[in-house]
Design a protein around this nucleic acid. Structure first.
Lengths: 110, 110
DNA sequence: CAAATATACATAATTTTCTTATGTATAAGT
DNA sequence: ACTTATACATAAGAAAATTATGTATATTTG
C-alpha cells in the first residue's frame, strides 16, 4: 500500500474479503480492483501484495491455479475452506478495531 | 499494543488524542486510560509506548515535564502547538482510513 | 513481615508488514 | 520506436510493533 498513510495489518483483510466476493482473482486484478473501489485513494504495491499472497497460500488459506491468457501468466487465487473461516475472523477483527478506535477517538459517539 | 490483533500505525493517533483531551498525562497513565476506555480490549505495551513518546517529543509535538510524586518519577507530556495541529491531521487520517476500509469491506454501506 | 502486585520509567532484540527499488517478460497504444 | 499496461517476482531497507529484560519505589495481601 502506498500514497495513503494507512495502517499496517489491513492488507490481508482486504485480499481475503475481495476473494470472498469474487471467487477467484489474480494479483494484478486485485491491485486494479482496490484502486477502482477506493477511487485511487488506496494503491496496493506489488512489493506488498505478492509476498502477502504467497504467505496466505503457505498458510493454507488460498489455493492457486496458474493460467495462460494472451501468452501471459496469471495466478488465480481462491479461498480454501479455512480461508473462508479466516475471512470471517478478519472482518470481525476489523469491525472491532474500528469500534475500539471510535471509543478512543470519539468517546461521545461510543 | 497487544492482545488485540490491531493495526500498526494507530498508536500515535491514540496518544495525541488522549493528550488533546486531558491536557497533560504521563506514560503509565496513558496505558491505564486506554485499558479503561476500551474495557481491557486494548493494552498498550510499554515497549511501544515509551519509544513513541520519545519520538513525538523529538518531533516537537510534545513537551515533557518531569515530576516526583510519592518519591517516584513521572514524566508529564503535553501537546505543543504543532502537536495540536498534528492531532487534527491524524484524526482526519483515521476517519478517512475507516471510510476507505468500509468501502472495501462493506461496499453496500459506502 | 515477606512476597506479590502495582506504579513508573527505559532499552535491546526480534518480528511483522510495509515501501522502494529492481528485475523479467509480453501486449497494446501513440 | 517508445511508452504504458499487463503480470509476475524478490531483495534491501524502514517503520512500528511485540517480547524480553532491567531498575526502582510503593502498596497490598496472605
Amino acid at each position: 500500500m502506498s500514497n495513503s498513510k494507512l495502517y499496517k495489518g489491513s492488507l490481508n483483510t482486504i485480499i481475503l474479503k475481495l476473494l470472498n466476493e469474487n471467487d477467484k482473482m489474480y494479483g494484478y486484478e486485485i491491485t486494479q480492483k482496490v484502486k477502482e473501489l477506493t477511487k485511487g485513494e488506496l494503491k496496493i504495491t506489488e512489493g506488498a501484495l505478492y509476498p502477502a499472497l504467497h504467505k496466505l497460500e503457505a498458510q493454507g488459506l488460498l489455493d492457486v491455479e496458474v493460467a495462460k491468457v494472451d501468452n501471459r501468466l496469471r495466478k488465480y487465487y481462491k479461498l480454501t475452506e479455512n480461508g473462508t473461516k479466516e475471512t470471517a475472523n478478519k472482518l470481525e477483527e476489523l469491525a472491532e478495531y474500528i469500534k475500539t478506535m471510535q471509543t478512543l477517538v470519539n468517546p461521545k459517539l461510543a
